[in-house]
């Protein structure tokens, strides 16, 4: 039972891998971003232009792959940026998802856990009679194994994506449930296309993920509503958090290294843009 002075999430709130990752890394960041919805436009990482370019290129690459998977002839897909061209070439040469099966591109799945909706937006899911494969495109530079593999395995994305495909994937499989053992998740790196990282799944991991996710979401709902939540003890990460001035944990944004992963918020569960609203609001 949730107490009255604990967190009440908005009726249309849904948890995602990125919001849970935020909570795991810093409870206060989660509170500011998702509960209080505080817009805080400080610089996230430096050099700003490079950071911005990497985000933009990452988005452009995801779009290119999506277009190719939808059947637009490759000859008509023409990346203009150098990085993008290189990544695209790597993708075409390795064709990481070139397998027979039903493809679900940019599909979102959701399930209720601890009385809250949890959603995941997949780059690609391929269903075959034997398997259910998740593909996630990464445009970060030069992942260094084994650290990358360990970090990826620990990320909420790996946990949430595999878990939700089992919990909510039946609709993608003619109503037949998907067993954990059928699921694999592949992180494909545009910079090192020959070294994708694969994670299998099993019933024990599924049960463990359910325990962890339930516990996390319950914990979030039990947090005190009107007081600041706990700040991260890993203060060095505050340099990459835009709320650092609000929490009085630094002034300037941290410098990203070439190999750092840049998380791209591509998850747009709806396609609800504001274009028509804007038209409605011309103050003639």
């Amino acid at each position: 039972m949730i107490r009255n002075n604990t967190t009440q999430l908005a009726p249309n709130f849904q948890f995602s891998q990125s919001s849970l990752q935020d909570y795991v890394e810093c409870k206060r960041r989660f509170q500011l971003r998702y509960i209080e919805r505080v817009a805080w436009p400080a610089v996230q990482a430096q050099p700003i232009l490079e950071h911005e370019a990497r985000l933009a290129n990452g988005q452009a690459f995801h779009r290119l792959v999506q277009q190719q998977l939808l059947g637009i002839p490759e000859t008509r897909l023409t990346p203009v940026d150098d990085d993008l061209r290189r990544w695209w070439q790597a993708y075409l040469e390795t064709r990481p998802a070139d397998i027979e099966g039903r493809r679900y591109i940019e599909i979102a799945l959701a399930a209720t856990i601890a009385d809250q909706r949890l959603v995941a937006q997949y780059d690609l899911v391929v269903i075959t009679p034997q398997s259910a494969q998740i593909f996630d495109w990464k445009t970060s530079t030069h992942p260094e194994k084994p650290e990358t593999t360990r970090r990826l395995f620990e990320r909420m994305q790996t946990r949430v994506y595999r878990y939700l495909l089992v919990r909510a994937g039946a609709d993608l499989n003619d109503g037949q449930s998907i067993a954990p053992e059928q699921v694999t998740m592949t992180y494909w790196f545009a910079e090192t296309p020959e070294e994708p990282v694969h994670f299998a799944y099993n019933a024990d991991q599924f049960a463990a993920d359910e325990r962890v996710l339930t516990s996390l979401i319950t914990e979030i709902q039990m947090q005190e509503l009107n007081s600041p939540w706990e700040l991260t003890t890993q203060e060095r990460t505050c340099a990459f958090c835009p709320y650092r001035s609000l929490c009085e944990r630094g002034v300037e944004a941290g410098e990203t290294q070439a190999g750092d992963e840049v998380e791209i918020e591509l998850s747009t569960p709806g396609i609800l843009d504001l274009d028509l609203d804007q038209i409605a609001e011309i103050p003639f």
């Binding site: 809250q116 919990r167 993608l172 396609i271 609800l272 274009d275 028509l276 609203d277």
Partner: peptide
Amino acid sequence: HMPQLRPGGTVNLATIGALARRMADLFWP
């Protein structure tokens, strides 16, 4: 987003304007 919903995909919401923009972006070539 109601918790009572069964597990599965997600319902999409759009305006015709948003749909037009999304399609123009995706199928531009």
